[in-house]
Design a protein around this nucleic acid. Structure first.
Length: 200
DNA sequence: GTTCTAGAAC
DNA sequence: GTTCTAGAAC
């Protein structure tokens, strides 16, 4: 099994498993939750940007991306549709949601079990974003875009995961995702990304 | 995934 | 002295 499948599992790792099994039990805490037979869309409980959703597969066999095979490609496309449905519901009345301002992808080594797609706006403006691991999990190759995962499945039938390599990405020095400048510390990074538009 | 906190960095 | 990071949590 993938995800956190090595050794013993802690209770906190199964919060998404529980929500996938019985979503209506959690409707009260997340009234805007989307649910169908195969997929749910939740607000991330500790959002790392102004908008941060989790599109969670309800397939009990899918704990992480290493469980994916070619046969799951239609399921992934459906998860993408659910993500777009959520974003179209939150777009402002006078303008379209700019999809390029969102990142849609998976963590290579997820902390929580049950396959979940992150859909996150790229402002990364959130008090819940606190340290380097948070930052690098969305802005380095630790973050695997949905399109890349689908491409790997089409080519090779699975998604190769190198644990040591992935853990290395989380230790990269902090760097602005727009202008690529190195940033030293988290408070400096936050101050910078509040203004940076990506130019030189 | 988070919380807590020791001690490094300044 | 304060800010900030990074490792433990049975």
């Amino acid at each position: 099994a993938g995800g956190g499948g090595r050794g013993s599992r802690h209770g906190w790792q199964d919060v998404l498993v529980q929500k996938a099994q019985n979503p209506e039990r959690f409707r009260e805490e997340d009234p805007d939750m989307l649910v169908d037979d195969t997929t749910i869309v939740l607000k991330d409980m500790y959002p790392k940007a102004r908008q941060h959703y989790l599109v969670v597969s309800r397939d009990p066999e899918l704990l992480g991306i290493s469980d994916l095979r070619r046969k799951h490609i239609p399921h992934l496309h459906h998860m993408q549709k659910m993500a777009e449905q959520r974003l179209s519901a939150v777009k402002s009345p006078d303008g379209e949601i700019a999809l390029e301002r969102f990142r849609m992808g998976f963590h290579t080594l997820p902390s929580l079990c049950q396959l979940h797609l992150h859909v996150i706006s790229d402002d990364f403006d959130s008090v819940c974003l606190k340290h380097k691991k948070h930052w690098n999990s969305f802005t380095t190759p630790f973050f695997k875009p949905l399109a890349e995962v689908v491409a790997r499945l089409e080519e090779g039938g699975e998604v190769a995961v190198n644990q040591e390599e992935a853990e290395g990405y989380l230790k990269w020095d902090l760097r602005c995702h727009r202008c690529q400048r190195g940033m030293g510390k988290i408070p400096q990074l936050k101050e910078h990304i509040a203004h940076c538009t990506g130019g030189e």
